[in-house]
């Protein structure tokens, strides 16, 4: 028994050291003469990792498969654009506003949306996002469909954007890990495995799902602001494009739905594949689509599902033991 706990403790220490080393390397990259291209690729990896982590929190743990996550990416991006460009406020206020507006919006739409179950929820969220797309295209306040240049971002160095993206990514993962390691996470996982049984054991389904939805919305909003800090130009068709959710969905499905490690691996693969296929714009999505279909049919639990079959991976100490 003691041997087991001590071996577990050494394992935990090794894991902690590995995580710290990885983080240290990531922090040093832009200083240590990391090439610009590498920095810009990593920025995308971090931000996609963050939004995919949130999509996974909803689809993988709460059973809320949403096709409307682009609503929050767009709201975050527009918060940044409006506050910095129109009102001349510092950039960081855009991130705060992105989170606040996303949470308020999520709270409002949760009332009708949470009445819908399963497929209806999925398409309901999508229609909400499409509403925002149409609304922003005909709304004078946000300059119609012309959108904004976010000129305050021009002065930022790639390294500055890199650290913002890294912070958002690490923040998102830490939030998810802390959430899953808490008692709340236990009810989440119970809910993922069997909703009816979880409810009988006293898990409050509605409240648990709502909390997840609000957290995911806030962080997707912040990451949305981060994405547009990098892109520096926003229009409704790009901000509220379903392709944001397509990306999240692919990342999570490829990496492994319902695991924390899945979106991390998925985001790395997604961004690298996209970069490799950059000169064939249509083909990259086509190939991603084919890969996703094959993975859903052959390995529905994604890469982490296959890996877990051979090694019991638990990087963040989330799995529970009886």
């Amino acid at each position: 028994m003691t041997e087991k706990t001590s071996s577990r403790r050494t394992k935990n220490i090794i894991k902690l050291i590995v995580l710290i080393v990885v983080l240290a390397v990531l922090v040093v990259i832009p200083i240590g003469g990391g090439r610009i291209r590498m920095t810009s690729v990593l920025i995308l990896v971090f931000l996609y990792m963050a939004i995919a982590q949130m999509w996974n929190l909803l689809a993988g743990y709460s059973g809320l498969v949403s096709l409307g996550a682009q609503a929050f990416v767009g709201l975050g991006g527009y918060s940044l654009a409006m506050l910095s460009q129109v009102y001349g406020l510092p950039l960081w206020t855009g991130f705060v506003a992105g989170a606040v507006i996303s949470v308020i919006f999520a709270l409002i739409i949760s009332m009708p949306i949470f009445k819908m179950k399963g497929v209806y929820f999925t398409v309901g969220t999508w229609i909400v996002a499409e509403c925002l797309l149409v609304l922003f295209s005909i709304w004078k306040f946000v300059n119609y469909s012309a959108g904004y240049n976010i000129s305050a971002t021009y002065k930022l160095t790639p390294a500055a954007i890199y650290y913002v993206a890294l912070a958002i990514c690490v923040g998102a993962i830490v939030v998810v890990v802390l959430l899953l390691r808490s008692k709340f996470g236990l009810s989440l996982m119970a809910m993922r495995d069997n909703e009816a049984a979880a409810e009988i054991r006293g898990v409050k389904l509605y409240r648990t799902k709502l909390i997840c939805f609000l957290i995911a919305s806030a962080i997707t909003g912040i990451a949305g602001a981060g994405l547009y800090l990098n892109i520096a130009y926003i229009t409704p068709p790009s901000a509220f494009n379903i392709s944001w959710t397509v990306a999240m969905c692919f990342i999570v499905v490829i990496g492994g739905i319902g695991t924390v490690e899945g979106p991390i691996i998925g985001a790395i693969i997604y961004v690298i594949l996209n970069q490799l296929l950059y000169s064939f714009p249509g083909f990259s999505m086509l190939i991603m689509g084919v890969i996703a279909i094959i993975i859903i049919i052959l390995a529905p639990k994604g890469i982490m599902g296959v890996v877990n079959r051979f090694f019991n991976v638990d990087l963040f100490g989330i799995k529970r033991r009886l």
């Binding site: 999925t122 084919v290 049919i297």
Partner: peptide, 24 residues
């Protein structure tokens, strides 16, 4: 091949198909 696994895998498969068709 996914219809017996509930509604979500089928949803995701047709979603993937939609992306493939659009880009093709």
């Amino acid at each position: 091949s996914v219809i017996d696994k509930g509604s979500e895998p089928a949803l995701l498969v047709t979603f993937g198909l939609s992306i493939v068709l659009q880009n093709a």
